[in-house]
């Protein structure tokens, strides 16, 4: 019996799992507060102002802000990319390598963009 080549899937699966946890735990609350309650004027916490947010971004050299961005944007992006990649496989569209490059590539690009924007502020 020949030994099959080791899959690189553990990397993507780990990012997918971590992203799934962040997605499930953090995003519903964030969406409720930032997407619904705040725009409707039902809550208006003082830190949700330009000065407040910018102060938060610069706390402790911006490290917490980067961590939050990773948890709220980057990891969920990889989670979504993994789902789309496997969804394409299920629908039998796209070649394995091409859809992989496209999905995870896009997640990486958008993640770097998000982190760069946080750093740039």
């Amino acid at each position: 019996m020949k030994t099959p080549k080791r899959s690189d899937e553990p990397i993507w699966w780990a990012l997918f799992s971590a992203g799934g946890v962040c997605f499930a735990v953090l995003l519903p609350a964030l969406m409720l507060v930032l997407g619904i309650l705040w725009p409707l004027g039902l809550v208006s916490p003082p830190w949700l102002s330009y000065a407040g947010v910018s102060a938060l971004l610069h706390t402790a050299y911006g490290v917490p802000a980067l961590l939050v961005t990773a948890a709220v944007i980057c990891l969920p992006l990889f989670h979504a990319a993994h789902r789309i990649h496997h969804g394409l496989h299920d629908l039998q569209c796209g070649y394995r390598q091409a859809s992989k490059l496209l999905c995870y590539g896009l997640a990486l690009l958008l993640s770097l963009l998000a982190l760069a924007l946080v750093l740039a502020i």
């Binding site: 019996m1 030994t3 099959p4 080549k5 080791r6 899959s7 899937e9 553990p10 699966w13 496997h86 496989h89 299920d90």
Partner: peptide, 13 residues
């Protein structure tokens, strides 16, 4: 070594 391949555990979605 069988489970580690793309056709092993990782073939499952």
């Amino acid at each position: 070594s069988q489970l580690n391949g793309n056709n092993g555990a990782w073939g499952c979605t």
